[in-house]
Design a protein around this nucleic acid. Structure first.
Lengths: 201, 201
DNA sequence: ATCATTTATTGACTTTTGTCAATTTTATTA
DNA sequence: TAATAAAATTGACAAAAGTCAATAAATGAT
């Protein structure tokens, strides 16, 4: 599993073999079950996760049972309940493994150690932050300037894998619309394109 | 002007006097008029701006004349058309000086120079990125999980100065709602709280 | 200070989206 | 593979928000 992590980072920053060993040594591995919670709302997030296989989601849960997905973390990506992790505060969001997944994770303390002792790690983190920040800006733009149909069509165009792979319920949570509205958008605009049924695979 | 910049950064990172001089030397200053455009949509953003006095906004403009404000940059903060600046691509958004403002700015090339030559600068940038990313995550959450009235009330609670200082039109653009809806929210929920008229100051 | 311009408010109406409920389809697991 | 649970779809209706238009208020430039 650690090789996957190294391979995905090796282009971002230049580290010696000793530094790579030091870095990788601070990541623990974990296998999760489908729907397993990695962080409960209200707890302070202690880890950054790197998804080797599978998919996590960070989501908000309202009192009424309604959920809103803040972000997905697919294979080859880092993620955490970011505000909680950085500010060391109880998290408004929970982290859930949507699929049975293999993840690596590093604690806040160890992450700080890497930032302080490996100069290239600061750069790598910065580049990952830039990428995440850009994604979030594009998402804000779609939310403030488009209606549900436009947002869905853009997602379909830019990230069709996401729609195929996840349940419509969760896609709706992510788009900020109800599952019924999403269902109607699908039948209205593109009847043939939707989640690939497992029975068709 | 450069003192304001140094004072706002000095707590984030440890630099020698020589390093501070080197850093500040790479920032140019500029005075802007009200409503002046610092970047037009379609151009690649060349600078990061630091607002000493006044306020900038980064906004999208639709074909129909409708505008959506991505973010505001008030005194003591950095900002840019971030995706364009980082990815070196034409910007979807424009940058406008809402008020007559004093700004400092640094070019992409000079910014890279600072990242490469001043280790503490990488850390400073990372901390600013973390802050911006957290803000954007909270904004996404409000957009996907709250209706217009809730978003407005939260903004009123967390950032009343923003509502007082800016026109309702621009606040509506920022909230992702129409000006009419915002006007109705104001009269419905909190008749006495609104923008402070200049005539009342 | 006045005037022209921009911004804000309000009403009437339309469109979009949400909610509730019933049904069908798909997925999970014993 | 049957049984059960979960998810998706659809219809009917309600609520939220947008649009258009008219008017009022505030601003800023002379």
């Amino acid at each position: 599993m650690h090789d996957v992590l190294k391979n995905s980072l090796v282009g971002l920053t230049a580290l010696s073999d000793e530094q790579w060993a030091f870095v990788l040594n601070h990541f623990k591995s974990k296998t999760t079950k489908r729907n397993e919670l990695l962080l409960e709302k209200g707890n302070t997030c202690q880890n950054i996760y790197f998804v080797v296989k599978g998919c996590l989601r960070i989501f908000l849960a309202g009192d009424d049972g309604q959920e809103s997905t803040r972000i997905f973390i697919f294979e080859g990506n880092f993620g955490t309940a970011f505000p909680s992790f950085v500010l060391r505060q109880p998290s408004a969001a929970a982290i859930q493994s949507i699929e049975a997944s293999d993840v690596l994770y590093i604690s806040y303390q160890h992450f700080q150690t890497l930032l302080e002792t490996i100069p290239g790690w600061e750069k790598m983190y910065r580049i990952i932050l830039e990428k995440g920040y850009i994604e979030s800006i594009l998402r804000i733009e779609s939310l403030i300037s488009m209606d549900a149909a436009e947002r869905y069509n853009i997602l379909l165009e830019k990230n069709p894998k996401l729609i195929q792979r996840l349940s419509a319920k969760i896609v709706a949570d992510y788009l900020g619309i109800s599952q019924e509205t999403l269902s109607r958008l699908k039948s209205r605009k593109s009847p043939k394109v939707g989640k690939v049924r497992k029975s068709e695979k």
